[in-house]
Amino acid sequence: MPIMTMIQAIQSALDEEMNRDERVMLLGEDVGKRGGVFLATEGLQEKYGPERVIDTPLSEAAIIGAAVGLAAHGMRPVAEIQFADYVFPGIDQLFSQAAKLRYRSGGQFTAPMVVRMPTGGGVKGGHHHSQSPEAHFAHTPGLKVVVVSTPYDTKGLLKAAIRDDDPVVFMEPKRLYRAIKEEVPADEYLLPIGKAAIRRPGRDLTLVSYGGPMVEVQKAAEEMAAASIEAEVIDLRTVMPWDKETVLASAAKTGRLLVVSEAPRTASLASEVVATVSEELFDQLLAPPLRVCGFDTPYPLAQDKLYMPTVTRILNAAKRLLEY
């Protein structure tokens, strides 16, 4: 089985889907001749031509809005937004058009499209190359939201997103693009949207996270294991709709829940998971659930590393849960 980075897994998924279905096409800034600023679409314009891989003018509204029209007309567009931070000029198209098309037409029109975007911090990107805006998307009914953390998941979930009949926002933590390599099948497989993965079984506490911080969460779990504390680690993978069943089963078993996310803490997905577990498992919990998140500030350049959940912060919160 070939060894791939997340970038290679994206290339492979896009290539297979374009090869399989001629309705699949790509559009975005610099995705053609340059192959994208992160090279996720490298070689695809050469292979499939400039009609199916379009270097667009610099307008996210044009990219996302045109994807809505293409999708409604029968294509399967995959739009790339250069950084999640730059989706905002296209938000009206994503929220008013893509998200609500099925609903406002009573199911007559649909927008089966994917909007890919690099997300998250840790690359010295300052305000506008570091944000994690998934909560905005999850808070907009009609959008599915995937946040990947491994090359294997990336390929299987991106292919599933392209075949999904709803608009899917597909978020790729840019600091993991080349950080992790693993075996990824060279041929066809799909992973279900909406299903979490248990990365590590455990009985003492439940660690729930997704995207970039999965690296720190797993390191923290390993350190705990060295001290004979067994954390169950859950990677949500999809944050809308998120896998409540898997999280509740684990939290019911361990009685202790810690949710980790690098997005700002207030009104976050971490808050949503904690609220749901508190509502449904109140009398089975051994300690109040906790969150470790990014700070409620714009993402600052100088504090690039301090801003995000660190292994130490995760361990300290776990300790509070265990000593409650």
């Binding site: 610099d30 340059r34 270097d55 667009t56 003018p57 610099l58």
Partner: peptide, 10 residues
Amino acid sequence: AISVNIRQQT
């Protein structure tokens, strides 16, 4: 605009 030539821009 990065790699995008003016003829593709406007």
